[in-house]
Design a protein around this nucleic acid. Sequence first.
DNA 1: TCTGCTTTCTAATAATCGTTAGAGTGTGTT
DNA 2: AACACACTCTAACGATTATTAGAAAGCAGA
Lengths: 235, 235
Amino acid sequence: MNETHRPLQDLLYEQVARIGKALSSPKRLEILDLLAQGEKSVERLAEETGIDIKLASAHLRVLKEGRLVMTRRQGRFIFYRLSGQDVASLSVKVRSVAEQHLLELRAALEQMSGDIGALDPRNRADLLAQARRGEVVVIDVRPAEEYQTAHLPFARSLPLAEIESRLAELPMDREIVAYCRGPFCVLSDEAVAMLRCLGFRARKLGDGVSEWQAAGLPLEFPATTSATDISYVSR
Amino acid sequence: MNETHRPLQDLLYEQVARIGKALSSPKRLEILDLLAQGEKSVERLAEETGIDIKLASAHLRVLKEGRLVMTRRQGRFIFYRLSGQDVASLSVKVRSVAEQHLLELRAALEQMSGDIGALDPRNRADLLAQARRGEVVVIDVRPAEEYQTAHLPFARSLPLAEIESRLAELPMDREIVAYCRGPFCVLSDEAVAMLRCLGFRARKLGDGVSEWQAAGLPLEFPATTSATDISYVSR
DNA sequence: TCTGCTTTCTAATAATCGTTAGAGTGTGTT
DNA sequence: AACACACTCTAACGATTATTAGAAAGCAGA
């Protein structure tokens, strides 16, 4: 009954395992989440993840060996980007399976943003409708260039660092919904905490653009402003 | 700008990496594919994957630590099963990303079943319609108990080992479509080769039940025949 | 050409993982 | 109770991997 197919089958699964290997390190998962917001240099990735540049480079090499990322050289910098939309949705899928089955993760997530009034992800469509009617104001608190790459419909860009100086743009009479890079990103938590302190009604949306897109909802892609822009996310 | 959130964020990604770790070994991926066909004992998994029972047990422990599988004891045997439908669809997703980006894998896959007349996965719906109208005969060449757990609509169970003795059940005037556990499984390749040798018109469908289900198409779940049956796939 | 900057490559060490063997656990059978 | 069986746990080995430091490669600007 057992066959001569072992070596070939082993070879197939070995290839798939390259993907799994790329997903098996916390820092690499974090890098993938960052790259889902748009292309970034090694330096930038190292800074955002809090690791040494050399180590970031090593992790990126593993991701590249699994063909999950691609590079582009511009002057002295090398920009990494995801090699496709499917990579972003894979990363969302892995996280959702983790949330489903790992109680430790659920506990940590609730501790992180349970008190900040996170929206139930089941009524994303409701939120979209409310935003369309102007009943809530959705703000994107990521850095401006990430908003530029892709953002939720009806969302305004209001990077965390600029909130304090741009409070006049925000309404007191309506609820403000803040989102950032995804459920593990703390930018929106900080924004909500700050806004509440200042008397605004604010809630967090745990989604990032990848989660939103994976849920089958539409994104907005601002017109590319320069020739060097890569709009790989935009199909 | 950089925060005190590192330790918490690291903890979150560490949890997700447990899933990645579980997916980073070829043998574990193969085990997941087998478990997607229904629960199996350690002995059975070791035999099907061609590894030692002790090694299979070790791999299963890793999968269990990532909460991707669960166990049930029945007498002297311990049966493993996937801990949810999402695990099967994750495994499909990982494989599809691998196929998309790893040229080596594509090449190996084509070499494996290019000459066997694999169906284009894009017309799954067509196949379903043809099968409904009786224009093609779909056979499930997996072991009978796997068919019993879940199978494609309109498919007949015809395990590879029984084909030779049950040729009378197959039509000469219509095309036969054989499927098995998935794109990496060789049962359907062998079935197609054998049938063609005998003068039948036969083609392979690369899908298994997980791929079929992940494509949004319906499955059939035969009525459970005994109280010990676990129909975890069947929701 | 020289210098500075970003990133990769190489080498080295500590930590982790895959794999095997042997002992141990829980279960059914005699 | 004694035994056989299926499986897990522990220990140990070599093989990978993570991480760090130092050297080197590629590019821009003077």
